[in-house]
Design a binder for these strands. Structure first.
Lengths: 140, 140
DNA sequence: GACAGAAGATTACACGTGTAGTCTAATGCT
DNA sequence: AGCATTAGACTACACGTGTAATCTTCTGTC
């Protein structure tokens, strides 16, 4: 049987919660001990800390679990892309008021992009531009 | 005389603090009452709340002030671009582990960009690409 | 000169978060 | 059978943050 304390969809993840979620998104459904083991070494938490985070994530509705033997198998309820998007919206919301593109520029500068990724992003920008042309709103 | 509680440079701003900083970045040095008045209407804080935030920002080293008559003129110590960059690094740090470019893609999708901005960003990507060619690290 | 009002300083208080420790029940090993 | 281990539940506790209210001092007004 599956379980999920609140059925509200998750709104946002804290930094530590992100670490845990990343493990589960990458490994798929995992037991607490495995999450603990799979965390990057820089993250140097006690296993209890991981348990706490897992519980909080269940409470938030970001994870649910299934009892397997004497332990839980935690599974992501929310998608990574969804949360990433939320995170992005968060920064845009905070920082915005000024133009958005300086922020994007910052992002691009910070990022370590491969040639291929650069190509993809350029394509994305082009499609944005096509959208614009199709439904122009305020051409500057 | 100028004043700034800690001389450590600021590390990060909370959401509410961002609101206040944006006002000061946009208006230039301002008194508390003017910050209060200049906040967007959606931000519906008591003036006391604004004072609290101003004090916290001074304590953080994001603002300093000069006494003018019976009140303070608050002035930004940190630059907006600096803080934006920090914010960007924050998201990248949290979200990363997976590739960076999906995050960027998210950003681009969320953003409302003008034709001109799109052009600038494409140029930025191109210059990124040139950097790559000049000092290749791991061409995929 | 007395009092209202404004400035900043200090205090408040609940909630999220980082970071565990303790309590209790089940399980496995010897 | 008994004890060490392990799992999850519950508790803890300090710090940042959102969101003010109260206290103290100064100043302008009648």
């Amino acid at each position: 049987m599956t379980n999920n304390a609140s059925n509200e969809p998750v709104q946002s993840l804290s930094g530590a919660e992100w670490e845990v979620m990343k493990v589960i998104w990458e490994r798929g459904p995992s037991a607490a001990r495995d999450v603990y083991a799979a965390l990057p070494e820089e993250v140097n938490w006690a296993s209890k800390t991981v348990k706490t985070l897992l519980s909080r994530l269940v409470a938030k509705g970001a994870l649910d679990y299934e009892q397997i033997g004497n332990s839980y198998l935690y599974r992501a309820v929310v998608e990574r892309s969804q949360m990433t998007r939320h995170e992005v919206r968060g920064v845009l919301g905070r920082v915005m008021g000024a133009a958005v593109s300086p922020v994007l520029a910052n992002f691009i500068e910070e990022a370590e992009l491969s040639d291929k990724e650069i190509g993809q992003l350029k394509k994305l920008l082009d499609s944005k531009r096509r959208e614009l042309r199709a439904a122009p709103k305020k051409g500057k």
